[in-house]
């Protein structure tokens, strides 16, 4: 999994690519912990280039959401498609997060 971080005027756009499995979820947690520690507050998580996610990935996204919420920040999701959308739908996660079609739409709502 690759994690690309793009600084925008109103927050950080984090683009995750590839597989988000049990091992990669650890990298994800580490990357977000660092961003939050550095003062990052509002985030858009772009999943349009993610092609696999397991429960470990879901667990990390939810844990990250709770950390960001703890700093009064926001985490919005975008670009859910294919099997990633399927996993979010089955788990009910699609309805508990604010999900947008595109990064632009999510950034406009930060």
């Amino acid at each position: 999994m690759d994690i690309e971080i793009i600084r925008k005027d109103n927050g950080l756009l984090v683009n995750i690519k590839g597989r988000m499995d049990a091992l990669m979820a650890v990298e994800f947690d580490r990357a977000f912990d660092k961003l939050i520690q550095e003062g990052g507050k509002n985030f858009v998580l772009d999943m349009s280039e993610l092609n696999y996610v397991s429960s470990a990935g879901l667990r990390s996204v939810l844990a990250t959401y709770k950390k960001i919420k703890g700093t009064s920040g926001k985490l919005l999701l975008c670009g859910l498609g294919g099997v990633v959308k399927e996993v979010f739908d089955i788990s009910g996660f699609a309805s508990i997060f604010q999900v947008f079609d595109t990064a632009e739409a999510a950034l406009a709502n930060l």
Binding site: R59, L62, I90, I96
Partner: peptide, 22 residues
């Protein structure tokens, strides 16, 4: 637990559910 309230969702416990549905 698949409750829609994000604050109440427990972290984890979803793996078996995902597999059974897949």
């Amino acid at each position: 637990d698949t409750s829609p309230q994000i604050e109440k969702r427990k972290i984890g416990g979803l793996g078996i559910h995902l597999v059974r549905r897949t």
